[in-house]
Design a protein around this nucleic acid. Structure first.
Lengths: 334, 334
DNA sequence: TTGAAAGCGCTAACAC
DNA sequence: GTGTTAGCGCTTTCAA
């Protein structure tokens, strides 16, 4: 590894001269600067990041804690975080919690040892269910910046980036009602998450507001231990539905394929919408219409927010919640 | 931030005493050790990672460079890498190249400044197509350990973790032939990658070896700019196929759904197999049979390999290529 | 049994 | 215009 010391020795000058020369200090003579830079380039000198971090008490690295990287939403969010971080000269250390509280605590604890300047966090399901927040409050007490996204731990006060799940599901349902649909099903694999609950409540609220229309509604909370297709097929076979909303990023696709296979004409007989993305939408025949949660945008904004946060770390900023708008992408099932 | 210095001041001892006490040095008196540890625990002291890294010239961090995190294979591999890293006390810094050579070069260059102890790398498509290897050779020259996985840059000599794509596709095709299938199609979105080419060649070789059977075969290289479903539908409508192999992790699912929708009975009329995973398999009706590439295992092994590599960094190790076996998962389309 | 000092690579205040 | 020095937080050798 090439160090300042080494360059200095080669050129018979002092370390500080080299350091200053490389940063174009006007304390240093023009020819010296040139000479130093030339050698540095020749030897492909790169300032040691660790030494810089130690010296400047900042690592230019953000810790990202997510529950599950195989979930496309989080993969996309991470992608957005990454992109924005690269732009702004930051690196990302990722930890995956597998929806477990203890892993989340461990990850945060390990990275709090000076490895990162701040955290972007989507809490695990366990954390949410148990409303645990000690590990997060510890972070806040240590004055380590934190941005929470997607999953809202309401008993923690910090910066947040969310989508308005309630309103999204509400609007979606209302749209279907206005399209003349009357017999609804709501399918969810994520009822344990507040995100899932909010979507369900948005759905229910829209229906309740139109109860003069005598609408029918069914709610299928998927049993994760059993075959998804069987559960969805049972629902679709036993009921004459004309609208299906999937709260997660999988069951919408399955619903389309199952409905198709048992003779539903889509979207004539039944409208189906999921919360997913373009790629998954293309996997079903016909292609699933979906709510685009703009996961990348959420990630980008979370990253921007944490960087802002880093800048006025000591200024007593008040926390804010940024809501990222969603959009409905009409493909072939609405 | 609590430092050794601070603890030392509180206890009226020297920094070195505290340091030794915390590591249970037998140079230090029992009561001193106790007293130091007590305070450290009370104040939740954590040794500063950056200082440790600088002192010990190792960061206990691995750089992982992947082309695309939205590709489930890489997401799963990353997951495996993560898990294993956590077990072994390592952190992961991830960079996504979006299949671009310049991003790959940039990522590697940035992280080579002492941020990481070694690299796990799946090269980008651009890198592969252009056979660029300067940036990677630079790494090797600097004596920074490197493990390459999945995508093989054959003009670079280093440790590698791969699957035997040729043999896998060959075996798969042979199996279908032995099952009595006679009219084959091979669908691929990844012909640009050597992985994709190897799969195609395995397919072709198996067919060639059985040319006395008068087998028919078609190869559909998907045009990424056009609708996948349309291209696949055209293939399936215009040809009377009884076996379809998808080289990637998407088109298999689409093929099942499209075939189903145009009246094929699966698997009676046609067998379909893809290179994908359990979750995606569940999205089609009927469920897609698939080659499980064991991406997690690949990731885990890559991580183990790089750690081994780190240990005998200076010992002149000869490079090896580890081939991870795949397995065929028979669901409902074979 | 404890402490002082050097050094990892870097920056920056200060001296020359 | 260039060099010396201190210090970021830590470990470790050597001295006391």
């Amino acid at each position: 590894m090439i160090t300042l010391k080494y360059l200095a020795k080669q050129l018979n000058v002092s370390v500080s001269t080299v350091s200053k020369a490389l940063s174009d200090s006007d304390e240093i003579g023009k020819d010296t600067i040139e000479k130093v830079k030339k050698l540095a380039k020749e030897l492909n000198y790169q300032p040691n990041k660790v030494a810089l971090s130690l010296k400047q008490s900042q690592t230019k690295t953000i810790g990202v804690i997510i529950p599950n990287i195989l979930n496309r939403f989080f993969a996309r969010a991470l992608f957005g975080i990454q992109n924005e971080a690269t732009k702004l000269g930051y690196s990302i250390i990722t930890c995956v919690t597998n929806e477990q509280l203890d892993k989340e605590e461990e990850s945060i604890s390990i990275l709090s040892n000076g490895s990162v300047d701040g955290f972007i966090l989507a809490v695990s399901e366990e954390t949410l269910v148990s409303s645990s927040n000690q590990h997060i409050k510890a972070l806040i007490n240590k004055n380590i910046p934190l941005v929470m996204f997607d999953r809202n731990l309401s008993n923690v006060d910090c910066n947040k980036v969310m989508i308005d799940d309630f309103k999204t599901a509400y609007d979606l349902t209302k749209m279907l009602i206005e399209n003349g649909r009357t017999s609804f099903a709501f399918i969810s694999t994520i009822e344990d998450l507040n995100v899932g609950k909010l979507r369900r409540m948005g759905f229910e609220n829209a229906l309740n507001e139109h109860n003069h229309l005598n609408l029918k509604d069914l709610i299928l909370i998927i049993d994760n231990d059993k075959d998804y297709q069987v559960q969805i097929k049972t629902l679709l076979s036993n009921n004459n539905l004309d609208a299906v909303i999937s709260a997660d990023n999988i069951t919408g696709t399955i619903a389309v394929n199952v409905a198709h296979s048992i003779g539903y004409h889509i979207p004539k007989d039944v409208s189906i919408i999921g919360f997913t993305d373009e790629q998954v939408s293309n996997l079903s025949v016909p292609k699933l219409s979906y709510v685009n949660q703009n996961a990348e945008t959420i990630g980008e904004n979370a990253l921007k927010m944490i960087i802002d946060n880093l800048k006025d770390k000591d200024a007593g900023i008040r926390h804010r919640t940024l809501k990222i708008p969603v959009n409905i992408v009409h493909k072939e099932t609405t």
